[in-house]
């Protein structure tokens, strides 16, 4: 059984870059509130998606369309249209989170393959069974709260495919269950497809250094000239009981590259790389490296050697294997 590498594409050119770099599948979304990466200038028009699907299929790659936000009350049309357009484009699957969207897709688009988004936070065999039996969901994107051992147990208990994040941004909070961003800015992943949205971001120079602010709240402060992080709320520095710390999560990103073989043994069908907001240069490099690593593992090569192949990616930024190792908790 071979591992499927699922790679991000924020734009048509990133899609082409990911496919050319060896992605087995590419995931992307429409340029509206129907997908959880509703950032300025990102995503696809229906025509661009059709073109992207053609490009990917011609090279043996699949396209998965994320329609993974929660539909706004009284305004279901964009989600309906997104499902229609995804089916029309010839995409291989849609990635959904909202009960209303799942229900509509199952009733009106029986030929469309449904994947359950991480935003649905289905972390137990019972929840997975519910989505599988009710909507015919074929694959679950696993919440990033499970350890590798728990994933193995879970896979033994369910008959759907599972997909696990291996690289890129990391939410310490259960995805699809977090309103921190809207508490501060009025916009959140579930309400608007964005987290800590850029229009609320500001950097302020002060005597204590550069403050990174989100909607007026100081999320972090660094010495003048030091790299200032994007003020994602949960990666900020806060004070509790007199202690200043990155209470929720350090400013790290997920790198489970050393666990590829373990995840494969745990029965995971697909490995997902996060980063639809990232540039195509970055995407191409990460995809190329992971593809080589996956092939090396499948060829039974030494895991140490695979680790060395991926070492280049970890340079610079700080990384964690997240919840996959139980000590993270």
């Amino acid at each position: 059984m071979s591992i499927e590498l699922v790679c991000p594409a924020g734009t048509p050119s990133a899609l082409r870059a990911a496919v050319d770099a060896g992605a087995h599948s590419v995931y992307c979304g429409f340029r509206d509130e129907t997908n959880a990466r509703n950032f300025p200038g990102l995503n696809f028009s229906p025509e661009e998606l059709t073109e992207g699907v053609r490009y990917a299929h011609a090279r043996g790659a699949k396209v998965l369309v994320a329609i993974n936000t929660f539909a706004k009350a009284g305004a279901f049309d964009p989600w309906k249209k997104a499902l229609e357009n995804a089916e029309k484009s010839g995409a291989d699957a849609v990635i959904l989170a909202d009960l209303a969207v799942l229900d509509h897709a199952a009733r009106n688009h029986p030929a469309l393959r449904l994947h359950l988004s991480v935003q649905a936070a289905a972390a137990t065999p019972e929840a997975i069974e519910f989505y599988q039996q009710t909507f015919g969901v074929k694959r679950i994107v696993l919440p990033r709260v499970l350890s590798v051992e728990e994933i193995a147990t879970l896979n033994a208990a369910v008959s759907v495919e599972t997909e696990a994040f291996v690289f890129g941004g990391l939410c310490p909070m259960t995805e699809g269950r977090c309103s921190l961003s809207s508490y501060v800015t009025g916009r959140s992943p579930n309400l608007s497809g964005v987290c800590s949205p850029p229009e609320h971001v500001a950097y302020e120079e002060g005597p204590g250094g550069t403050a990174t602010k989100l909607a007026g709240y100081t999320i972090d402060r660094v010495a003048k000239g030091a790299p200032a992080g994007y003020p994602t709320l949960c990666k900020g520095s806060f004070v509790a009981e007199g202690k200043t710390s990155h209470l929720f999560e350090d400013p790290v990103s997920l790198n489970a590259s050393t666990l590829i073989a373990a995840l494969a043994r745990a029965g995971v069908t697909a490995l997902k790389i996060e980063g639809r907001q990232r540039g195509k240069g970055y995407v191409a490099e990460v995809v190329r490296t992971f593809r080589a690593a996956v092939e090396a593992i499948e060829a039974g090569r030494d895991e140490v050697e695979v680790e060395r192949m991926l070492a280049g990616l970890v340079e610079g930024g700080r990384q964690t294997s997240g919840a996959y190792k139980k000590t993270w908790r």
Partner: peptide, 28 residues
């Protein structure tokens, strides 16, 4: 694409002020 939307904000070599969302749109 060498420096992407995220890197924009991390890069000590670049200072950004004003409507950051517009810049992100332009970059993308």
């Amino acid at each position: 694409g060498t420096f992407d939307g995220d890197a924009l904000f991390f890069n000590r070599a670049i200072t950004v002020s004003g409507k950051t969302d517009a810049l992100l749109a332009l970059r993308n």
